[in-house]
Design a protein around this nucleic acid. Structure first.
Lengths: 210, 210
DNA sequence: TTCATAGTTCGATGATAGCCGAAGCATCGA
DNA sequence: TCGATGCTTCGGCTATCATCGAACTATGAA
């Protein structure tokens, strides 16, 4: 289970159970121990519990152990992820998720448009300016009684955070208005299709980091 | 046992057993497993079996694990070494051991007088010259049918290698002839006492490294 | 509200890891 | 050659751990 988490992605308890080839009950007990030992950290998301390695140090130690194990001739093979095409862009409730969603939040962090600590995300002054100038979004108008402006939402396919909250929704709305992207016509589909120009504009603002 | 080995020193099977608070039989089984796993390496020395961590990587991983354990509030305390005054210089069979013996071999390696790989030590051309000029020892005359000229011998107190073999014995003989050092008068004592001038001359040739 | 799903807790069971006593090798010293 | 010491192997015991079935809680969907 730990090696499965070494990709940096977060996995649910059941997925980890399946990965390890044990029942959920057994996995639950092991996960509790790993958490008590400070090796992993849970993140609640609806009725799921996503687990991730609690620290880069843990990944380092595991990597070292794998190296030693490899020298001793003991090695496990890991299967890579296998996912459909909607990994790239889709709707999560009302905001952008998938590869592009994760990429967007990553880029926003790099550009210091937001500050993130754990689940809490805060828009910086620079971020507000950016939203107003580039996307014509008035961040101050997004406050809502029961919903935060910014929120980290764990991405189903990427298992990394993307941006939720009223700002996430407003940005998705703007992308739609600007005809950069549109929800797939197929009923029930969550796929988001980006137009050619939309993709370019999006990349100009939130291009994959160096 | 592994944390006991993290000092870099080699420890005997019985010492590791005592350190762990278990019987030698139990320790033997664990040591066999650790060796099979490539974590430790044995070195036979007479009827002792000295174990050391097989690799700096192993020490790194252990250190990482200890760090994680410390964060989780689980930690072990380790007792330091405790040894008598004969740690400094003593006779090991017929050659110099103890702090000064280890220091001597270290210095010889640094000065490229010898080349060492594992237990095997070889005198370099530079080394032969050094022996002839500084200590009036003809290295070529030291060959022996059943004994190597140079041999790494694991030091009891320092748990590092010092120089054994006919060369080690010849050097100790020379030190005695030159009145640099003498075996302690007490019968049965293995202590070697260095004279004031002897200590200086020795330090001039094999001074502690920079 | 009711049902389905994700996850946990509890209890029982079977496997095994750790442990030690006794005995067997190997090495050293006399 | 013989005894002492360091270490290992063997056999058996016990405690513990991983495992799963059954039952329970929480969240989301209908």
């Amino acid at each position: 289970m730990l090696t499965a988490l070494m990709t940096g992605r977060a996995l649910t308890a059941s997925e980890l159970a399946q990965e390890a080839g044990i029942t959920p009950q057994t996995a639950s007990s092991h996960l509790a121990k790993l958490e008590a030992g400070g090796l992993i950290e849970p993140e609640k998301q609806g009725r799921h519990r996503y687990y991730r390695l609690s620290d880069p140090d843990v990944a380092d130690v595991l990597e070292g152990l794998q190296g030693i194990a490899a020298r001793a001739g003991h090695m496990r093979v890991r299967t890579g992820p296998k996912d459909p095409a909607l990994r790239r862009a889709r709707i999560c409730y009302d905001h952008l998720a998938g590869d592009l969603g994760v990429q967007m939040l990553d880029s926003m962090r790099r550009q210091k448009l937001v500050r993130q600590s754990k689940q809490a995300i805060e828009l910086t002054g620079e971020g507000k300016r950016f939203m107003a100038e580039e996307l014509q979004i008035d961040a101050d108008a997004l406050t809502h009684p029961r919903r935060p402006v910014c929120k980290a939402c764990l991405d189903w396919s990427e298992r990394r955070h993307h941006l939720a909250g009223t700002l996430g929704a407003a940005m998705m709305d703007r992308f739609t208005e600007l005809k950069w992207a549109a929800r797939d016509a197929t009923p029930g589909s969550r796929v988001v299709n980006f137009s050619r120009t939309g993709e370019k504009r999006f990349a100009a603002l939130f291009g994959a980091g160096e």
